[in-house]
Design a protein around this nucleic acid. Sequence first.
RNA 1: GGUCCCAUCGUCUAGUGGUUAGGACGCUGGCCUCUCACGCCGGAAGCCGGGGUUCAACUCCCCGUGGGACUACCA
Length: 472
Amino acid sequence: MDQHKEIRTRFAPSPTGYLHVGGARTALFNWLYARHYQGKFILRIEDTDQIRSTEESTQAILDAMTWLGLGWDEGPFYQAQRVDIHRELVEKLIDGKKAYYCTCSPEELEEKRKVALQTGRKPKYDGACREKGRARTSDSVVRFRCPDYGVTIVNDLIKGAITFSNEELDDLVIERADGYPTYNFAVVVDDAQMGITHVLRGDDHVNNTPRQILLYEALGYEVPHFGHVPMILGSDKARLSKRHGATSVMAYKDMGYLPEALVNYLVRLGWSHGDQEIFSMAELVDLFDLNTVGKSAAIFNPEKLLWLNAHYIKEYSLDQLVECVKPFWTAKELDVSDPDFLNHAVDDLRSRSKTLVEMADSGQFYFADEVTYDPEAAGKFLTPEVVEYLQAIIRELPQCADYSKTGIEQFLRRFTEDRGVKLKIIAQPLRVALTGKTVSPGIDDVMITLGKERVIRRLEKAAEFIANAGAA
RNA sequence: GGUCCCAUCGUCUAGUGGUUAGGACGCUGGCCUCUCACGCCGGAAGCCGGGGUUCAACUCCCCGUGGGACUACCA
């Protein structure tokens, strides 16, 4: 291997849907490999399937990559815009007798496959048109002439050497009747012309690789290095799909995940560095390599992703985190205009939230003009017995000069000591009065964030609520 | 059916012939405590099976078994 050659990797999704987590990990590995070796990461959109490809999907994929922080150095290139190049090379192969026109109809091929399968033979193309010297017709395709004997060896960077018998490979279609190249042909031409040195992709492509190597050779291109990354499976060991939960990268954004968490989770699926679990992007660039990528498929575990997300929520700077939560509150039409208030609220919430959505939900009470009481919580804690305590706090709190963490702690301590009760006794009623729930951040933190006036107002409302409940 | 790949706790993984098989998520016992979390301390939980090779196999080889991928004019 030429040590001085610049390393060039690529991610080449087909725009037929959103970027899913499996694709994201493939992209991440390519990105990291290129960054680690100071190479280039190229993005190419494989949109030669005119029917299934959409611009909307392309944009969704670009958005997701940007959100994950996987910027590309070149592209995006669009494969469909390169069909003239592909056709020219198909022509060249035909002229060189390395490819030929085939006029077998899809129906008869399907029939032949069925029969072959039933009689226990390989369902490969029988080469009916191979030596016929057919000419192009309106529904002819072009097939590549595969060697009938010999072997093709894939020296995989992750899996090691894999040997294929050429007789197992059939004469694959390289140009469809509509004139567009097929995947196996276009990918070879584009990777070669874009100078890709390392093709890192899902291991569902290993069986394509020998044919592609044969194409590289027929076209006179240098064969790149290949690395096939194991698949990501669902909890039932089947290919990861929607029924296992969200698979779209952007769905995770919407569910309140931080990109660092997804990246960290994904990179550890198949790759490891000793016992380390938490990696920053900079560390990953520094440490990532292919020799530490495992060979076996991994099952996607949402629990661990959640744990990582909670970790990054705790690690983020407060300013950064506030900016991330804001949209979720805005979506609930809450007033997020007071930066100081927001900072306090987010700081109260961060250690008890696994997602931004959870944070936005559990912190909703901060913004409410009118606290809505959870009926069960109110029934249990907003009782006539606590009214006098609430009213006492309403009376005494205005005199609390030091309205700070320690000041409130002191205030509450003195308040409970004076009455000979445990903090426990008044904390829960207070919590329900201020938040409407029995679960919330520390009561002192809530009081500080809310501010003296809001606290008193909410306590008055609670006292009123209890009085009304008693009257009714 | 054929070809190819894979195999350490439930899950992600460390391990590269000699280890009490390590870490993490989850689960769980306890501590902390105004609730819930966080945090801290502890626990249960694993080398798919069978043959070899070797003084010695989780580690190497073979065969099973299990799982996965591909087998399109989709990528």
